[in-house]
Amino acid sequence: MGTESEEQPHGAAVVADGFGVKGPRGWVFRKVSFRAEPGALVAIEGPSGSGRTCLLLALTGRMKAKEGHAEVGGLPLPRKMAAVRRISALGQVPGVNELDPAFTVAEHLHERALLQHRFDGSVRALLRRPGTRAAEARARIEEAVAAAGLDLDALPKGGRTSVRDLERLEALRLSIALALIGRPRLLAVDDTDLKLSDAARAEVWTLLRSLTASGTTVLAVCSEAPEDALRITTVAAESPEVPEAPEAPETPEAPEALAKVSTEKTGKAGKTGKTADAPEATGPEDAAGATRTNTDADTTASTTEEGAADALAETGRS
């Protein structure tokens, strides 16, 4: 069993250098570099779709990076993703760990405490008497609820209030309380200021500052970061579309020649000679720069396989 000082939350330093994540459609974000000291408040801001949540997940060991590197509490990413997950915790992230609307507040808290004890507790803790384990679970819940500023008595039905009946601010506090039950060194919160009034946003940032004051490092995704936070701004990823290939030089005879080749190939197969064979050269053996014809298309593009490969490589889809 660890000492009391070892159980207290202490922040994890977060360092990123050229950090990037690539998905099936190209780069989600890339070239992210910053350094945050233990107990820092880091605000990840940017427009929707710019990779804010993916950066949050990557820095907490839930998503694998494709370029650069990062460290959380001295643990390198992506090599030590499992270890980073053990020292970090997520607030509610849509599609990842959403609250169950049918559960009550008390059920959520009790379930999280049981899971925490079952999977993260020491072997000695598992052998303790049931009464002792229950008392420790209650203590953890009370500590987390107080730290998150969640007033159970102020809820419509107290702890028996269903999640579906919670206001947005109270649901956010509950998700933070659930994350704090594990006493993480790094807390990650998504959509921090989504659908909140100015007064409610101020309450949330005050709450997060209080957590950093107690030693926990906080990563928070938001649309607008407060002035006192370490601000990390993401931007929309480059378009994954392949750039259009340059058109072949126009010549007065080209349209007529192409039309003639297509007509002769269709109506006089075997009698067109060498000219009619030109459009069939579509494999790797084509000469560089050869013009290719698609009779079903309205336009004709001219390119080489080497040029297409270069374009794909530039967009991150090769």
Rank of each mutant, 00 (worst) to 15 (best):
A220G: 01
L99H: 05
L57W: 00
E280P: 07
L208K: 00
R138Q: 11
G283H: 11
V32K: 02
V221F: 01
A259T: 05
P246V: 13
G316P: 00
G39S: 03
R79F: 06
T192A: 15
S214K: 14
F19L: 15
L169R: 08
V235Y: 08
V28Y: 06
F103S: 12
R201V: 14
M81L: 13
V242R: 05
S33F: 00
V32L: 07
A269I: 10
L152P: 01
L114K: 08
G18A: 02
K31C: 10
P101V: 09
V235D: 13
D296Y: 04
V123R: 11
E250Q: 13
A288P: 15
G11P: 03
A237R: 02
T132E: 15
E37H: 05
T263N: 11
G23I: 04
G270L: 07
L174G: 09
E227T: 07
V218W: 02
L187K: 04
F34V: 06
M81W: 06
K274H: 12
F103W: 07
A259K: 06
E7L: 14
V105M: 04
L172H: 09
A82H: 09
V72M: 03
G283P: 06
A276C: 07
W205S: 08
I181S: 00
G49N: 09
G20K: 02
R168I: 12
L194F: 10
L114T: 08
V145G: 01
V242N: 02
P255K: 00
I181N: 00
L126R: 14
M63I: 10
A58C: 03
K66W: 09
V204C: 05
D191Y: 09
L99G: 11
R52P: 04
R185A: 15
C222F: 00
R201E: 15
I44K: 01
P246N: 10
S210L: 04
G26W: 02
T234C: 14
K22A: 14
A213H: 06
I44N: 00
T60I: 03
A154Y: 03
D310C: 06
P255R: 01
P249G: 04
A257V: 12
A237I: 01
M1T: 11
V42R: 01
